[in-house]
């Protein structure tokens, strides 16, 4: 994977957001806020952080990326297409009959998807199993990255995994919480309060790094710091803006599980191309 400059990474994230809007509009269903908020993190992961090869998705030295909150998979599909796993044109098959791009990701359908996910709370346990297996196999330079939603932390399964990873000192796990403060029924702190989230993870024996999840440079640095931690699993709490880049979606929990219609998509694409009207776009 050729390395990109920071500016190129930021431009790539915008292109990925544009594809997310087009995919969701075309599909007519799916989740908008989470994928847009995660675009910078996924750009950083696929174009800088992860050891991977789009031409050899089963490469046995690759880092593993799990997406525990599988409903945000449009961002993963769009980033994978940009990274060269498949043609961008296939993105428009999202959620259609016969597509490899299922509404929630399935391992058997698309090479490069590491696990079938969607029902929440399972990814961290699977990461722990993978990390244990890597240790048994004496693979010391591989990491398991696992992206989770913040609403997903309501699931008890997550905290069972948190205890296990801490007990076995699985420092080859790097968890990433998409801390966007919304879930389906409203703000996380009114649905089921999570704070103090950093204290919770530290109490469970994890090393915690807090970062602006919409700052690509800061997120890449956080991953480098996470890889340097020994004897503890690491949780990166990545603060993101849900719906990032689209003015009428930002911070609005109603966009958690809804796609844009045609006019909304047009406005969203305009927002993305003009940095919400701050600059002129050549497309205008």
């Amino acid at each position: 994977m050729p390395s990109l400059t920071l500016q190129q990474l930021e431009e790539k994230a915008v292109e990925i957001r544009e594809d997310i809007i087009r995919m969701l509009e075309h599909a007519g269903s799916g989740h908008s806020a989470g994928p847009l908020g995660l675009a910078d993190i996924f750009t950083a992961l696929y174009f800088d952080v992860l050891k991977h090869d789009p031409k050899k998705p089963d490469w046995d030295e690759r880092d593993i990326l799990l997406l525990s909150n599988g409903h945000t998979v449009p961002v993963r599909y769009a980033t994978m297409a940009h990274a060269g796993y498949f043609e961008r044109s296939e993105l428009m098959t999202l959620r259609q009959f016969g597509s490899r791009l299922q509404g929630h990701p399935e391992r058997d359908k698309l090479p490069g998807i590491e696990h079938t996910s969607g029902p929440l709370g399972c990814g961290l346990s699977q990461a722990a199993g993978m990390a244990l297996a890597m240790r048994m196999n004496k693979q010391t330079h591989r990491w398991v990255y696992v992206v989770m939603g913040d609403g997903e932390l309501d699931e008890g399964n997550i905290w069972e995994a948190a205890m296990l990873a801490s007990k076995y000192k699985l420092s080859n796990i790097i968890g990433i919480i998409d801390r966007n403060n919304i879930q389906i029924d409203g703000p996380t702190e009114s649905v089921m309060p999570l704070e103090d989230l950093k204290d919770k993870w530290e109490a469970f024996g994890w090393h915690v790094i807090e970062v602006d999840g919409n700052n690509i440079e800061a997120f890449i640095d956080a991953c480098a710091m996470a890889r340097a931690v020994v004897a503890k699993p690491v949780m990166i709490i990545a603060h993101t803006v849900p719906g990032k880049g689209v003015d009428f979606m930002e911070y609005d929990f109603h966009w958690h599980g809804a796609p844009p219609n045609h006019d909304q998509a047009k406005e969203a694409l305009h927002d993305l191309r003009t940095l919400k009207g701050k600059i002129r776009s050549e497309h205008e």
Binding site: E114, H115, G121, C122, S125, Q126, A127, A128, G129, M130, A131, L132, A133, M134, M136, N137, G156, N157, E160, A161, M163, L164, Y168
Partner: peptide, 24 residues
């Protein structure tokens, strides 16, 4: 090659899924 999971059956099978994914 033995993992004590504790009283956590949801974790038991999902950790199993992760182990199997890596060839165990």
């Amino acid at each position: 090659r033995f993992i004590e999971i504790g009283v956590a059956e949801q974790n038991l099978v999902t950790v199993g899924s992760g182990l199997a994914a890596m060839g165990k």
